[in-house]
Design a protein around this nucleic acid. Sequence first.
DNA 1: TAACTGATATGACAAATGTCATAAGAATAA
DNA 2: TTATTCTTATGACATTTGTCATATCAGTTA
Lengths: 202, 202
Amino acid sequence: MTTIYIAEDQEMLNSALSAILELENDFNIVGNATDGKSALSQTTALKPDVAILDIEMPYLSGLEVAQQLRILKQDIKIVILTTFARKKYFEAAVNAQVDAYLLKDSPTDKLVETINKILDGQTIYDSNLVSSILTASKNPLTPQELKIMKEFSQGKTTQEIAESVFLSNGTVRNYISSILSKTGTHSRIEALNIAKKNNWID
Amino acid sequence: MTTIYIAEDQEMLNSALSAILELENDFNIVGNATDGKSALSQTTALKPDVAILDIEMPYLSGLEVAQQLRILKQDIKIVILTTFARKKYFEAAVNAQVDAYLLKDSPTDKLVETINKILDGQTIYDSNLVSSILTASKNPLTPQELKIMKEFSQGKTTQEIAESVFLSNGTVRNYISSILSKTGTHSRIEALNIAKKNNWID
DNA sequence: TAACTGATATGACAAATGTCATAAGAATAA
DNA sequence: TTATTCTTATGACATTTGTCATATCAGTTA
């Protein structure tokens, strides 16, 4: 019998998954949460064989929960289950040595199958995810430019950005000018729209 | 026996709901789709008793599907199932005379319960939704201001907006100035951030 | 009716934004 | 070693943006 813990903040999916996995003869749902903090404390207490973790949850993200569980060296298989095919998320998941990374854009059969495979020692990364990351138009912005973009995405003015990143006003304007040119735009808002569409920023 | 059709673009939830509702003795899932267009053509063909419609789907939104079904005067109970507690969506749903509006932030039990109630002739609006709409800080922008805001959210410049809405450049600037003052901000980006947080725009 | 709000407009002004040329040091790649 | 890229910076310039005062006209509300 395999014990499973589910952390998913969307109630509908959370309860639906619990019900479905319970139907499998060899699975037993031992608990579930809708936020990361409860998920972490309960998985450490209940020690299930498998934890299914959503990424975007209140208090602690599923990725942070996974990291903690690895730091605690708990013997647990981790499945990250998310809507987002974001490179950043995927990289963090790989670093946390999760056993599977699955998109919610897969049917439940796939989840069951995945759980069985990771119990077998395999590591499963959603193939749609991997290909979508590879085909994603890659970010042409330098780290510094990205940093500046995140600043102005909050609505900060050039001067505020300059102060917050310890650069001169002119340098910040140069970076922005470069961002605009790389995105083929002529204003911060347009640049932000492009960056969001391409998942360069949230 | 009640026949049910499910339209939900997130595969995981779609298949999970199908499986769960199938478990109920008196429910029979007769079809499901992950986009609005198939949902509309199949519900008109299969004539299920109940259609569960997600809002945000490719090609046609669940709300549009609901509208069409009402125009066609098909005898069908409609449940809108969505993540979003947006006033606009809710109003559109009420106008389309849907039988229930449920948030994905409710457990599956609630869905089953809701389906049974609407089959009984009741109309069910998620109580969390209704209260969240009532408490939502209401939009202080006039229709015209909102229109202008949508324009600049696309990154348009004052001049472009002026041309697209047939106003003078100065008038557009006045509107924007008024928007900034109402949102307590000093730049378009800040104003957009506030508006998004409060769901005044998408 | 009087007061208010909304839509529209102009003109003037200060501040912010975006563009360019130019430069220099550091790091990295060829 | 040379070429390229990244980070940082300045100065100058044109344009855009945001603010204010002011005004007219049409509705709506008190």
